[in-house]
Nucleic acid binder design. Structure first.
Lengths: 339, 339
DNA sequence: ATTTTCAACGAAACCGTTTTCGTGTTAACA
DNA sequence: TGTTAACACGAAAACGGTTTCGTTGAAAAT
C-alpha cells in the first residue's frame, strides 16, 4: 500500500521548500525552468494529486453540490439527478444526494449535515410533509448563511431563491383540452391533495380547460388521493361510480392502474375511456396500451437547476436577484388516447 | 447574511483561548463548569456548528462514501442507492453519487475525482464497457492506496475487495425450473452478451435447469441482445420464429416487450406463453398482466454494501481479508405465469 | 516554609494547501 | 564602488478545527 504523497514529501525529497513545489506544479513564473521540470517530473513519477479537502478548506469551495429530494425510486427524480450530474460533472462538481423520503425531519437533518461546509449549494425538491406543514425555516437559515439554493418542481414561494418548474397548469390544461377536442364529455381527474404544489397547479389547468368549454365542470369528477401511496380500491370505486370517458392522472401509476381496471371491466382504450398521465417514465412507455403523458422533462430540469446553482456559486458578487425558470411541458401521444 | 461563526470568533468574544472553546464544547473534564456553560450557551446562541471540512482535514476522514454506478434511471440501481443511503445516513455518512453511464472513461474520471480525499471508500457496480474491456487498473490503484472498495452486482474477480452479489445463477435456475415444473416445453431465454457478469451467471442457471430435466437444451432458444438498449424488432422476430411457451428474460423491459408482442399475436399469458423477468421494479408490478420476476433485493444489497464498507473504513486494523456476500434471489409470482 | 499536587487554561503543532511578503544572490547600471 | 533591479526561492500566515503538552496559581501535604 503506497500512501498518498503530499507537497511536503516532494519538498523533503527534492530539498526545496513546500512553497516552491506548490508554485512549480502550477507553472508559476517565479520558479526557474530547471526546478519546475524537476518537481513536475517527480510529481508525475509518484502520481501526486493534490488533496481536495485541503484545497476546499483553503478557498472555501468544495466543488460539491447537495441534492435533497423526496425519493429516488421515482423516475422523474431520477432523470433530474441525471441532468444535474451531467451539467455538474462537466464542470468539476460532485453531487451529494440525500433522500428526505417525504419526511420533514429527514429533510432538515440532511440539510444540516451538508450545510456545514460540505457543499457549495443546494438543489432540492420539497418533501410532501414540508409542503403540508408550510415550515421553511431550514431553507431560510441556509439562504441567510449565503448558501445558494435552487428549488425545482416542488417549490414554495415563501423562500427567495432560484426556482425551476414546469408549467404544470399548462400541461394539465393542454391534456384536458386534448380530451375535449376529441369529443370526450365526462373527463375525470385523479390527483393528490392540494398541499403538493404541483397537484394544485395541475388541478387548476384541468378546471380552466373545462370552464373554457361548454362542458360543465363537476367537482365530483375529481378524485383526491390522500397521499402518493397507491390505493387501488379508491381508484376502482371512483371509476365504477363516475364512468368517465377520459381520465387525467397526475402521475403514471394512477393512470396505469386506472387503465387496468377499465380493461378488466371490458372497456376499450381509448375508445370507451382514454387516459393521460404525468411523467414520461418507463411505465408509460411499456404500459399496454402505451400511456400518453404530459412529459416533465426531468433531465432538462436538472440541467437548468445545476446551471443556475453553479452560476450563483461562482459569481463573486452576491446579487440578490432570483429568477424562476418555467419549462414548457410536452404532450407525448401514445395509444391510450386517439390519434 | 450572518456568516458562519468559528471557534476563533467565540474565543475572541469570550476572551479565552481557542483550545478552551474546543474542549468546552466537547464537555472536556479539563474545563471548569462555569466556563463550559458560558461557552456552550454562547455557541448555542450563535448557532455554532463545526466546519466539516476542517474536521475532515484533521482526522483524514470525510464521512462521505462514493457510489459509482452505470446508470441511475434504472430501478435496480435506484433501490441499491436507497439501501446505501439508509444505512450510511444513519451512521452520519453522506453519499456522493457518480454515474459512469456504462462508459469506461467516465468511470475512471469519476473515481479519480473522488479518490483525492473526497471520500472514505467506494461502493460500485462496473460499467458494461469496463467489464467488456476487462481493464481494472483504476480499481487497483485505488485499493493500493488503501481506500476500501465494495463491488456489487456487476463485479470482477480480478480485484481483491469485498463484494455483494445475488446468486444470479440460482435465480435463473429457479425460474427455469418453475417453467419446467409447470409443464412448459419450449423455454426461451432473452439475455445480453456474456461480458456482463450477471448475464453470464443467469445463462448458466438456465442451462443447468434444462440439463437436469429431460428437455433438450437448445442453443438457438437463446437470444443475446448486443447491448442493454432495447431492440424491439429483434425480440419480435425471435419470438415469431421460435414460438416458445415460456420466456425467461434478464430484465424487466425485455419481458414486458415480449409480453406485448405475444398479446398482439393473440396468445394468452400465461397459458400459451409464460414470462419471468429479473428485477422487481414498477414495471413488473404494473404491467398487464403483472410480471413474475426474480427479485434482486437491491435495497438489501445496498445496505449490505454500505455495512461492509463502513466496517472496513472504521476498523483501524487493515485486515487483508475480503468477503463476498451472496444474497438469495426470490421468485415473485404474479400473473405472467400460472399459479 | 517548602514542596507537591491538582484544577483550569493556553501555546503550539498539525492536517495539506495557497499565497503574500520577504530575502539573498547576481548582474547591470551610474 | 555603490546602488538598483531582476530572479529564484523560502518563511510564515491562513483556512478551522483537534490534541498534546506545557504553565500558572492556589490548596494540600510535608
Amino acid at each position: 500500500m503506497k500512501a498518498k504523497i503530499t507537497l511536503k514529501d516532494i519538498a523533503r525529497e527534492l530539498e526545496v521548500s513546500i512553497s516552491t513545489v506548490s508554485k512549480a506544479l502550477k507553472n508559476s513564473e517565479e520558479i526557474s525552468r530547471d526546478t519546475k521540470e524537476k518537481v513536475q517530473a517527480f510529481a508525475k513519477l509518484y502520481n501526486y494529486k493534490p488533496n481536495n479537502i485541503a484545497i476546499s478548506l483553503k478557498n472555501k469551495r468544495t466543488k460539491n453540490i447537495g441534492v435533497v429530494i423526496p425519493d429516488i425510486v421515482h423516475h422523474f427524480f431520477t432523470t433530474v439527478i441525471r441532468g444535474i450530474e451531467k451539467y455538474a460533472n462537466a464542470r468539476g462538481y460532485n453531487v451529494i444526494v440525500c433522500l428526505s423520503e417525504e419526511s420533514f425531519d429527514k429533510e432538515v437533518i440532511n440539510m444540516e449535515m451538508l450545510a456545514n461546509g460540505s457543499i457549495d449549494g443546494f438543489i432540492m425538491s420539497l418533501s410532501s410533509e414540508t409542503q403540508q406543514k408550510g415550515d421553511y425555516n431550514h431553507l431560510k437559515e441556509v439562504t441567510e448563511q449565503g448558501i445558494p439554493v435552487v428549488l425545482f418542481d416542488r417549490i414554495t414561494h415563501e423562500i427567495e431563491c432560484d426556482k425551476v418548474i414546469i408549467d404544470d397548469e399548462l400541461g394539465a390544461y393542454q391534456a384536458t383540452k386534448k380530451f375535449i377536442d376529441q369529443g370526450k364529455k365526462k373527463i375525470a381527474l385523479i390527483t393528490t391533495d392540494d398541499y403538493l404544489s404541483v397537484s394544485k397547479a395541475r388541478t387548476q389547468g384541468y378546471w380552466k380547460a373545462l370552464q373554457e368549454s361548454e362542458l360543465e365542470a363537476d367537482e365530483s369528477m375529481i378524485l383526491k388521493m390522500p397521499s402518493m401511496e397507491m390505493d387501488e380500491e379508491a381508484i376502482k370505486t371512483f371509476l365504477d361510480n363516475k364512468e368517465p370517458d377520459a381520465v387525467l392522472c397526475v402521475n403514471e401509476i394512477f393512470a396505469v392502474c386506472g387503465m387496468r381496471f377499465a380493461q378488466k371491466k371490458g372497456l376499450r382504450i381509448p375508445d370507451d375511456v382514454a387516459f393521460i398521465g404525468f411523467t414520461d417514465g418507463v411505465l408509460s412507455k411499456y404500459a399496454n396500451p402505451s400511456l400518453s403523458v404530459v412529459a416533465q422533462h426531468g433531465e432538462k430540469m436538472g440541467e437548468e437547476s445545476a446551471k443556475m446553482l453553479i452560476y450563483k456559486v461562482e459569481s463573486e458578487a452576491e446579487e440578490e436577484t432570483y429568477q424562476t425558470k418555467i419549462l414548457e411541458p410536452t404532450l407525448v401521444i401514445r395509444d391510450s388516447i386517439a390519434h
